[in-house]
């Protein structure tokens, strides 16, 4: 097949480009995540916090796509960015928290927090350094993250936990409504 060789050469070039882009994307997204995560911690306004967290989550969705977990990426955007973070924003705006400036913790405590986080990071790195060699159970395939595959696993192996999680949701909903109600209902009895 004469065309094949050309294709191969062309593909190889494409692949190399792809690879460079891949590696670049990984580090780029990682950097965005770390920086925005740090900003979540250090910026004072809650609204800003939410914005940075959303940025962080979008970068995470990019990571999911790099890992061929397309379904996760979509669900992540929908659930976290679309629902949870909106909820955060909603609460902040509802309670008008943006104006209420909460004083920071004392300097000693803050330094302690940073040091503790650093130590924690070091310890975890130390713990994961001597971990394990990956021996994949299945041959490599880039299709595991597709809706079809994840769905099959979810509804075959994890059907019961999936159903039970609905109970969790109901109880969470009931709890949220309970907490959200005005207090005088409780005060009556």
């Amino acid at each position: 097949m004469p065309e094949a060789g050309w294709d191969y050469a062309k593909q190889t070039t494409n692949q190399k480009l792809n690879q460079v882009i891949m590696v670049f994307l990984f580090y780029f997204l990682s950097a965005i995540m770390v920086i925005s995560a740090l900003l979540v911690v250090f910026s004072k306004s809650p609204i800003n916090n939410v914005i940075y967290l959303i940025i962080c989550f979008i970068a995470m969705a990019g990571h999911y796509i790099l890992l061929n977990a397309q379904f996760l990426a979509v669900v992540h955007i929908i659930v976290y960015t679309g629902a949870i973070m909106v909820l955060f924003l909603f609460v902040i705006m509802l309670l008008n928290l943006n104006k209420a400036i909460i004083p920071q913790k004392s300097a000693v405590t803050r330094i302690m927090a940073v040091v503790t986080g650093g130590i924690f990071f070091l310890v975890l790195i130390a713990a994961t350094r001597q971990t394990f060699v990956i021996n994949p159970r299945y041959a490599f395939t880039s299709e595991i993250g597709l809706v079809a595959n994840v769905g099959k696993t979810l509804f075959h192996e994890f059907l019961l936990p999936f159903e039970i999680s609905s109970v969790l949701f109901i109880s969470a909903m009931v709890g949220a409504v309970m907490f959200g109600k005005r207090d005088h209902a409780v005060g009556d009895d």
């Binding site: 913790k105 503790t116 130590i119 924690f120 310890v123 713990a127």
Partner: peptide, 20 residues
């Protein structure tokens, strides 16, 4: 609460270090 959080983290840290 903040203090408790610190204590908890310290505990987890010590635990991991112990295992290591």
């Amino acid at each position: 609460m903040s203090f408790y959080l610190f204590a908890m983290v310290a505990g987890i840290l010590l635990f991991i270090i112990f295992i290591l």
